[in-house]
């Protein structure tokens, strides 16, 4: 059987005009189109609600326990590895005069992680050759700002460093 390609007019019984003064097939066509428009609108609205972020908040500083007070460097710079919700991260603790500072290892250029090189007494960035001195000042390369100094405090023998989370 081949479907009739000539069947644009429909069977004769469909040609009756109902109370609406409209052919049955025209009515159905409008009905189906209406349902399609309604459903796609509903889907679009649902999708927009779903995709809109549920939690929009500014990051706040939270203090995280990174090490014990005994591990603070007597002089120079110390690389400290700490664990926060199952992930290992790094922070640099440094002695500066009588006090301490915490440096974020995130390069201020494009965010690679710098590493402290003891023999050169420099923080070196592997990505585009950024160099910082022991107090975080840029001495070479593209970084626009010194290394970020993170807020820190020592309480009850533990060292806490503030991160924005």
């Amino acid at each position: 059987m081949t479907p009739g390609r000539t069947a644009g007019t429909g069977p004769p019984e469909a040609a009756q005009h109902g109370k609406l003064g409209m052919e049955r097939r025209d009515f159905l066509k409008i009905l189906v189109q209406g349902i399609l428009v309604l459903l796609s609108t509903l889907a679009a609205v649902t999708a927009a609600i779903f995709a809109y972020p549920a939690r929009i908040r500014q990051k706040t500083v939270q203090f995280i326990d990174v090490s014990s007070e005994d591990e603070l460097p007597g002089r120079g710079i110390k690389r400290v590895v700490y664990e926060e919700s199952g992930r290992k991260s790094i922070v640099y603790l440094a002695r500066e005069g009588d006090s301490y500072v915490a440096f974020s290892p995130v390069c201020t250029h494009l965010g690679c992680l710098v590493s402290y090189n003891r023999s050169q007494n420099r923080f070196l960035c592997p990505c585009h050759g950024g160099k910082y001195d022991a107090s975080g000042r840029v001495i070479e390369g593209p970084p626009p700002l010194p290394l970020t100094r993170l807020p820190m405090k020592v309480e009850k023998g533990r060292v806490f460093v503030g991160f924005k989370v």
């Binding site: 649902t46 609600i49 779903f50 809109y52 549920a54 939690r55």
Partner: peptide
Amino acid sequence: HEVHLGWLI
């Protein structure tokens, strides 16, 4: 639990 209508989708 967090995403709007996440449970529905």
